[in-house]
Design a protein around this nucleic acid. Structure first.
Length: 549
RNA sequence: GGGGACGUAGCUCAGUUGGUUAGAGCGCUGCCCUGUCACGGCAGAGGUCGCGGGUUCGAGCCCCGUCGUCCCCGCCA
């Protein structure tokens, strides 16, 4: 690393380089100073794509110098700034909540921190600031938000890290609509900062519809969804094909894939989740040979063009699964959901694999590319590239067959629909939760709800979830107490900030927008964490390690 | 816990049905050139083909195991 000391001057006309930002000037150097020695990096920061994730993460300080990473973090900064500013303008106050706290019931595993002062006791890192933000409502901060770090000790994915950042907010006296309006505004502001305009209002879909149409509660609307093709088959057809006639029969198509060879199709088979009790037909030629009418009808119902790859997914009667067979009036059974989910998952996996052929994702890439030189003033229309959608009307409970009991589908502070309250005990299956998810392009961007604000209701929910008074007292006593001191109706939401950035950076992985991320095995390759600690440290913390042999 | 993909030079990759001394581009080192700026020219170094075992006359290639990275299911909103 050297410093050049001298006079900056214009270059000679024939020496001007229009390709360089500084191509018109040069330094007439009188002195060169060596500021620091440097080793040769394992790869050049000028490299466009380094595929070896191991080497990238180990030498993250070099990786972050790459133009793409510099761009991603500048983008992250701009978006975060815009969101913060927008929420502030909407009357929200940013309040920090503790990192060392008590376990909050988001359903994930907690990261625990041993207390030195209190032997045998632990703090938990927040999975979300859930209880604290609800208490802030009780404290009269009508509109709270926080760019909050959250921690969940679960296995990682492309869109999941152990620690991540949420745009967390809560408001008093809201209706679902007012939460939606707030979110749509700040999200649009964030997108605008990235040079993309987001059309509002966002469309909505019920949970059931989302499962039926996409086989997931985070649908990617850039590709055609699932089509119910049960009517294409006669009962005898299904019997021959060994398909469960009582379960959904759906088809989906991946546009423009063309005909696949037997080998190509077989290579796709591991992408299908066998364990869900569903099966698929991907050999359409063979289907058409045996059941020409049904096959034609399937393609017609699915709206398939000749070059579209069509796959039928249906229930497998022979497959022994643990799912509940119980069908509750008016809602999808677990087995039905499993068939939809198997289809939905296959759909997204194949969509990823054949992205080059259907081209539906390319539109997003192109908009992202075009947008990153723009700003709020000249934002590019993002309506063809980004598809936000609200998912509403989730069931309040799910039936757990093994334990033969109803378990919450969400955290236990989610309010049931006012109209369904009466059925809490008598008919749990029918109770809908007043909660909502926001999905975009196959990613869950966030999740929120109108909360329970009355102590008696909260206790009733705990009771219906099988949480004893004693346990509720121990875990949430302070919160139950707080509820008694004039709690306004309140509700809110939290959106994954990293995921928003990831979408706008055109990245396929959260690691591209988090400076120092962990690997899929939860390791920090640069810092080499986690590691063992000294005996002395353990002793102070009253901890003894007992490894399984 | 399960399924799948990948692992060849510092980086990106090629390597045929198993067959001499494992290649390319970029990078690196030395020299030359000095209005070059993704310079150019000449010469050169650099590989336990992730690791261990097996099959074979012979393994980068086949088989088994193992480690690592990535993607997915489970788990997690």
């Amino acid at each position: 690393m050297v410093a050049a000391v001298g006079k900056v001057r214009l270059r000679a006309k024939d020496a001007i380089n229009p390709k360089m930002e500084t191509g018109e000037v040069e330094i007439e150097t009188t002195e060169l100073r060596v500021l620091n020695d440097t080793r040769l990096a394992p790869f050049s920061p000028a490299e466009e794509a380094i595929k070896d994730e191991e080497v990238r993460l180990k030498y993250r300080y070099v990786d972050l110098r790459r133009a793409e990473m510099q761009r991603n973090f500048k983008l992250r900064h701009e978006i975060t700034l815009a969101i913060r500013d927008n929420l502030s303008q909407q009357g929200f106050l940013e309040v920090e909540t503790p990192i060392l706290t008590k376990s909050t019931p988001e359903g994930a595993r907690d990261f625990l921190v041993p207390s030195r002062v209190h032997a045998g006791e632990f703090y938990a890192l927040p999975q979300s600031p859930q209880i604290f933000k609800q208490i802030l409502m009780i404290s009269g901060f009508d509109r709270y938000f926080q760019i909050a770090r959250c921690f969940r000790d679960e296995d990682l994915r492309a869109d999941r890290q152990l620690e991540f950042t949420q745009v967390d907010l809560e408001m008093s006296f809201p209706r679902r609509e007012s939460v939606f309006a707030v979110v749509e505004k700040f999200l649009a502001a964030g997108f605008a900062a990235a040079g993309v305009s987001l059309p509002r209002p966002f469309p909505r879909i019920t949970y059931d519809e989302s499962m039926r149409q996409y086989g997931t509660d985070k649908p990617d609307l850039r590709l055609p969804g699932l089509t119910d093709v049960r009517s294409a088959f006669m009962d005898e057809n299904l019997a021959t094909l060994q398909i469960d006639p009582a379960l959904p029969v759906v088809a989906f198509r991946i546009p423009n894939v063309g005909e696949l060879s037997r080998k190509e199709r077989e290579d796709n088979h591991p992408l299908f989740d066998q364990k869900k009790g569903a099966k698929f037909i991907d050999d359409f030629k063979r289907l058409a040979k045996s059941f020409p009418e049904a096959a034609a009808k399937v393609r017609e119902l699915a709206g398939a063009a000749d070059a579209d790859f069509v796959i039928v997914v249906a229930g497998d009667p022979a497959h022994h699964i643990k799912a509940s067979d119980t069908k509750f009036e008016g809602r999808l059974s677990e087995r039905e959901i499993n068939v939809y989910a198997a289809a939905g998952n296959f759909r997204t996996e194949l969509a990823k694999k054949y992205a080059d052929r259907h081209g539906a994702f390319k539109i997003t890439e192109e908009i992202v590319e075009a947008a990153h030189v723009r700003g709020p003033a000249d934002a590019i229309d993002g309506s063809s590239a980004f598809h936000p959608i609200w998912i509403v009307d989730f069931p309040m409970f799910e039936y757990e067959l093994a334990a033969a009991k109803w378990v919450p589908a969400h955290h236990p502070f989610t309010a049931p629909y006012e109209a369904d309250m009466a059925n809490l005990v008598s008919d749990p299956a029918s109770v809908r939760a007043d909660c909502y998810d926001l999905a975009m392009n196959g990613l869950e961007l966030g999740s929120g709800s109108i909360r329970i604000h009355r102590k008696d209701v909260q206790q009733q929910i705990f009771a219906s979830l099988g949480i004893s008074d004693e346990e509720a007292r121990k875990r949430f006593g302070f919160f139950l107490d707080a509820l008694e001191y004039g709690t306004p109706p309140h509700g809110g939401i939290a959106l994954g900030l990293d995921r928003i950035i990831m979408l706008l950076a055109g990245a396929a992985n959260l690691r591209e927008v988090i400076a120092f991320p962990k690997t899929a095995k939860a390791i920090d390759l640069m810092a080499d964490a986690p590691t063992t600690v000294t005996e002395q440290q353990l002793r102070e913390l009253h901890i003894r390690v007992a490894l399984k042999s």
